Simulated scan of single mutants.
Amino acid sequence: MNTQDLLNQIAFIKEIDKVKYIQRKTKLFNSDRNENDAEHSWHLALMAIVLAEHSDAPIDILKVVKMVLIHDIVEIDSGDVFMYDTLKNHLNSDEERIAANRIFGLLPQKQAEEFIAVWEEFEAGETNEAKFAKSMDRLEPLLQNTSNNGGTWKEFDVKYEKVYEKKSVIKNGSATLWNYAEGLINESIEKGILKK
């Protein structure tokens, strides 16, 4: 056993506990409490396992689970960027790259390289696994907002066009889940919890 590798792994495990303190704008289902990044990542991992059969392409579900569990770890340093933020882009940033190198760099080199590669693959969104993982990442807050009478859409006056644009990423991983999501978006318009 390499004692230094173990100590590095324990240091990483302690560091990622900070994900539990990163508050997201979305609220838990049928709740007024904000979700944190750890809850979000856990929920996406279970969603991916449960909904894997709806992927449009064959996927390595373990890789998808890894992606959704680590995709927001960089927010320990960079903070959460609200999906509908009008001032800051939600795409990969220099801040997130620096955070990825620092946080994953706590691990032994081989693991650090693997985690960074998985994180980069998720961010690029080009592989079947990344497309499905991103579908999960966009579906969960949609389900939350519809369970909360519009949730962050109402709170931040987010319009239909922006929601539709951001959520349409779901179709890259699953036509079935996109059809379901599109139906929820349209129902939200009819119910008046999302405005055009």
Rank of each mutant, 00 (worst) to 15 (best):
V64R: 00
D60K: 09
A48I: 00
I61F: 09
D60H: 08
D85G: 02
D80Q: 12
H71G: 08
S93M: 00
A99F: 10
A99P: 01
S78N: 01
R102A: 15
A52H: 02
K63P: 07
A45G: 14
V81P: 01
D77T: 03
I76C: 04
E95G: 06
A48D: 11
L69V: 14
R102Q: 14
N92A: 14
A57K: 09
H90S: 09
D72N: 07
I49A: 15
E96D: 08
R97Q: 15
D85T: 04
Y84W: 14
A100N: 10
D60S: 06
M67S: 02
I59C: 08
V74T: 04
N101C: 03
N92V: 10
A45T: 06
L46P: 12
D94P: 01
S41V: 05
W42A: 12
D80T: 13
V65C: 15
H71N: 13
I61M: 02
K88T: 05
A57Y: 05
E96F: 00
I73R: 10
D94T: 13
I70A: 11
K88Q: 09
I98D: 15
V50N: 14
L106E: 08
S93L: 01
S93T: 03
D94Y: 01
E53K: 03
V81M: 03
R102D: 13
